[in-house]
């Protein structure tokens, strides 16, 4: 029916113009009213903004800059809403979950192959916390270097999709070699935007230890030379309760 390998179709355009009319005054008033009356506890818990890069598993030559707005549930688990920029009109393009190495090692191998490592991103200065002094985030970077992430991208804005099309794509993290090497122009653009330099970060992060072990089931493409696509298929809807899944 629909696949991550599909080319973009109708409803998509090559320019970045969003589909839809601007927000009307009436809607703005409704939104403002709801905002004043409602509480936003889960959203208010977001405590970090990280910017990094990601590669589509079905085509690693397609790479994007990503903005993660992160909530910590405990020392070993983070959840992030991922946007395509840090502007107020950014598009919500997916969700990433981040777990510590301890949690990752307990996952079944079939699950592990969907996750990517973060050590290289941190050490190479690709992962940043915009506007944060490096010294303050160093303890967190040390934590993150040992973590693994699982990132599903639901809106392929890089190919000009005006609306989210198709099934989610599994995303990979940048790595030092092969298909994992991040596009130089993307990094230059990021460096210019935040008035920073990747090379400076590499130097200042030299003290952050490399993990002694990165599980080879993560970054599956590196050891196994295989990538992943996701398809949506037609099936019969179950309408009778099966209690076995709750046992």
């Amino acid at each position: 029916m629909s696949s991550t390998s599909e080319r973009n179709g109708a409803g998509a355009g090559k320019n970045g113009i969003p589909a839809g009319k601007p927000v009307s005054t009436g809607q703005q008033i409704l939104d403002k009213g709801a905002q004043m009356l409602q509480s936003f506890k889960p959203i208010n818990q977001m405590s970090q903004h990280a910017c990094t890069f990601a590669l589509y598993s079905q085509d690693m030559s397609r790479q994007i800059e990503t903005h993660h707005f992160i909530t910590r549930l405990n020392q070993d688990f983070l959840q992030a809403a991922v946007y395509d920029s840090d502007d107020s009109d950014a598009r919500l393009i997916g969700i990433e979950y981040i777990v510590s190495d301890a949690t990752f090692e307990k996952l079944p191998p079939d699950e592990q192959k969907l996750w990517h490592s973060h050590a290289y991103e941190i050490k190479s200065g690709l992962w940043i916390h915009p506007r944060m002094p490096e010294m303050i985030v160093t303890p967190e970077l040390k934590n993150l270097a040992k973590t693994y992430g699982k990132f599903w991208c639901t809106w392929q804005t890089d190919r000009g999709d005006k609306l989210p099309l198709g099934p989610p794509s599994l995303m990979m993290s940048p790595q030092a070699e092969g298909e994992g090497v991040v596009n130089h122009e993307l990094v230059t653009k990021r460096d210019e935007k935040y008035k920073m330099s990747k090379e400076d970060l590499v130097k200042s992060r030299i003290e952050i230890p490399e993990p002694e072990w990165i599980n080879p089931m993560a970054d599956y493409w590196r050891q196994h030379k295989k990538c992943f696509g996701v398809d949506v298929e037609s099936t019969k809807m179950k309408i009778e309760t099966d209690y076995s899944i709750y046992s």
Partner: peptide, 22 residues
């Protein structure tokens, strides 16, 4: 009807190659 997602192991695209039109 109903829908389900399926994971497919595929060959990795060599970097720099455009997606085939499947």
């Amino acid at each position: 009807v109903g829908l389900k997602t399926v994971l497919r192991e595929i060959e990795c695209k060599p970097s720099g190659q455009p997606e085939p039109s499947v």
